[in-house]
């Protein structure tokens, strides 16, 4: 199977690989997927507590090229967005942007989940109610 140029670009030059201090009050961490499924994503956000803007995002992913590209793209998209706007990112937008084939759609779902899971972690730390994740199983 050939990969799209955008998947290759993100895979070869992944944006925002790294770690944020997960104990910080303004950092939210999402860890989704499972090793036995072949995909694990960890996505972290650092939020400006006053404005609600995501000022930094980092990821690490165990997975195929499409999973790595999806998480790289996700961090790129959410940086500079407010938490509320980041919540609106739909996995199908990732599918379109990266031209993912049907068998790789789950990679985009995982990236969306990773964003929401990171936001929920942040909300919990801020004493807010976690939002309901539609993809939760």
């Amino acid at each position: 199977m050939a990969y799209s140029d955008k998947v290759l670009d993100h895979y070869n030059n992944p944006r925002n690989v790294g770690v944020l201090d997960k104990s910080a009050k303004n950092v939210g961490t999402g860890l989704v997927g499972a090793p036995e499924c072949g995909d694990v994503m960890r996505l972290q956000i650092e939020v400006d507590e006053k404005t609600g803007e995501i000022t930094e995002a980092k990821f690490k992913t165990f997975g195929c090229g499409s999973a790595i590209a999806s998480s790289s793209l996700a961090t790129e998209w959410i940086k500079g967005k407010t938490v509320d706007d980041a919540l609106k990112i739909d996995n199908m937008e990732i599918v379109e942007e990266l031209s993912l084939p049907p068998v790789k759609i789950h990679c985009s779902v995982l990236a969306e989940d990773a964003i929401k899971s990171a936001i929920n972690d942040y909300r919990k730390k801020q004493g807010l109610e976690p939002i309901h994740l539609e993809n939760e199983h």
């Binding site: 770690v19 997927g33 499972a34 090793p35 995909d39 690490k60 779902v109 899971s117 199983h137």
Partner: peptide, 17 residues
């Protein structure tokens, strides 16, 4: 990274898909 930190991956509660 988790392995290097000494976390037992078998004991992590994974959110499976």
């Amino acid at each position: 990274e988790m392995h290097k930190e000494g976390i037992d991956l078998q004991k992590v509660d994974w959110q499976e898909h």
